[in-house]
Design a protein around this nucleic acid. Sequence first.
DNA 1: ACACTTATGTACCGTTTGGTATGAATGTAG
DNA 2: CTACATTCATACCAAACGGTACATAAGTGT
Lengths: 197, 197
Amino acid sequence: MALGRPRAFDIDTALNRALEVFWSKGFDGASLTDLTEAMGISRPSLYAAFGNKEDLFRKALDRYKTEKMAYINEALAAPTARTLAERLLFGAATMLTDPSHPVGCLSVKGAMTCKDDSLIAREELDQLRCSFETAIIERLTRAIADGDLPPDSNPLVLQRFLGTVAMGMSLQASQGATAADLMAVARMALTAWPALR
Amino acid sequence: MALGRPRAFDIDTALNRALEVFWSKGFDGASLTDLTEAMGISRPSLYAAFGNKEDLFRKALDRYKTEKMAYINEALAAPTARTLAERLLFGAATMLTDPSHPVGCLSVKGAMTCKDDSLIAREELDQLRCSFETAIIERLTRAIADGDLPPDSNPLVLQRFLGTVAMGMSLQASQGATAADLMAVARMALTAWPALR
DNA sequence: ACACTTATGTACCGTTTGGTATGAATGTAG
DNA sequence: CTACATTCATACCAAACGGTACATAAGTGT
């Protein structure tokens, strides 16, 4: 049986290029022309290999999640709640300013730059964020049970604080803040973390 | 001398409608059709009264700055650095979730949803943010001189912390956080504020 | 009543958007 | 060498984008 003409580009590196474009321009800001030029392929090749623009974004987001948000899972595996908070904020500070890729956070940029209509990608983003949030909340409630946090702590508030600082750091990075700048913010934010005494 | 045909719409309420559209959809996300429909006027009327889309955005941003970011100036007038931080974060929490207008911050949304090319509005946004930042930094350095903050405090770090939390709260609001949610975050953030001892 | 100035409604401009039809090119299996 | 399956490049599509030309309508000053 014939297998057909082999594709002339590496589907994996092409997806990486697409990820970079979405990352720096957002979903709506990234045009098909932007994408195909960065990926080095033609429009029909893109559609044959990845579906449509939304599908491509989803696949890029998937790669982003597993490769660039790994620090969140590492934070979730921390032995104590305090270490979780440290790994989360310091990890965000380094990742958001890593010069090897666009600054800021794709999920933040993506959520802001997509029209309300006709965007299933938005659900994907909400779901991604939501899953991390609940994981952190569960980890923090377990920390209270372990005597790892004061019994009167509120896991929802603690999580929302961490999320707020992390998202804020994403915007700061987009506006030119350096890794050192964000580290200082992270250190100060950790000052607010409840002590066991 | 003839004065010409009077315009059939109130230029002030029309600008308010435009502000709401830009606020909820961003700069690129707000199409001319979106704007004219919300403003209840035709395209030529819009261009005759406001210039072009960028000019309209600038005027809407101007109104936003004077009306909706007033709490920042009130915070700058606070007697102590601590009160400044409180007014800033609590003010942001209430403003960002005020049900009488779109949630979140126009300057955050605007900065995220504009293409790099052909956007002088971006400069306007950067300049606006920058002016508030330097004002806060100057106020905080004065606070150190006044003995209002510990002498080893770093005004740049303190400002960046406040800005990070405020911007993070804007994103939280966009994702559905309530005023109470943001108030809790603000209270926790203020825990990190340096005490005089 | 007239001239003049400005606003309005319609209909249009060129460009860019996401997405495709189509035929030639390129590989493998028989 | 031939048949087949798939990708490739070109050229195109309808729709939406920001912006405008043009004729008409609606006022005011003389």
